Amino acid sequence: MAATSSVDVADLTPRAWRLLRVAAGYDQRTVEREIDDVLQAHVSMLESGERALSRSRRKELLDLYASELDAEQIEALAEHF
């Protein structure tokens, strides 16, 4: 799993969340299947800025995406988007 300690989930923008998901190769339905109690609607609201998941859920989501990305990819998306 990629190191994500330098990225704070509180600092990620809705656009960065969407780009991280897509870069990791996940669609919203797949995320729903991978993480218990996270629905496609939760991911959609997080990515649109309408609602945030709890910090622990956002960390779990970032960890899922990090399993498919390296630290440099995560940091670039977090920093530039």
Rank of each mutant, 00 (worst) to 15 (best):
A24T: 08
H42F: 13
E72C: 01
A10R: 05
R51M: 13
V9E: 10
S54K: 12
V38K: 05
L39F: 15
S5C: 14
I35T: 02
P14Q: 04
D36A: 13
E50R: 11
V9A: 04
E47V: 02
D70Q: 06
A78I: 01
Q40F: 01
L19Q: 12
V7N: 05
L62R: 02
Y26D: 10
W17V: 08
E60G: 01
S67V: 04
A2V: 07
D63V: 02
G49S: 08
E32D: 08
G25F: 01
E50M: 07
A71C: 14
L61V: 00
E34I: 00
D37I: 09
A71F: 06
L46E: 00
A78F: 09
V38M: 01
G49M: 08
L46I: 05
V22L: 12
R57C: 01
R29F: 13
L64E: 01
L20Y: 02
E75L: 02
E34T: 09
F81L: 15
A66G: 08
R21F: 00
S56G: 11
K59T: 07
Y26T: 11
E60T: 14
H80P: 14
F81Q: 14
A52V: 06
A78E: 12
W17M: 02
E32I: 15
E60A: 10
Q73R: 00
R58M: 08
D27E: 08
R33D: 07
Y65N: 07
A71I: 14
A16K: 09
A10Q: 11
D37G: 04
L62Q: 04
L19N: 05
R18C: 09
E32Y: 04
V9D: 02
R15V: 14
R18D: 14
L19R: 13
S67W: 13
V43R: 00
P14N: 06
R51A: 11
R15E: 15
R51P: 03
S67L: 11
A3W: 14
R21W: 10
L46N: 05
E50L: 10
T4V: 14
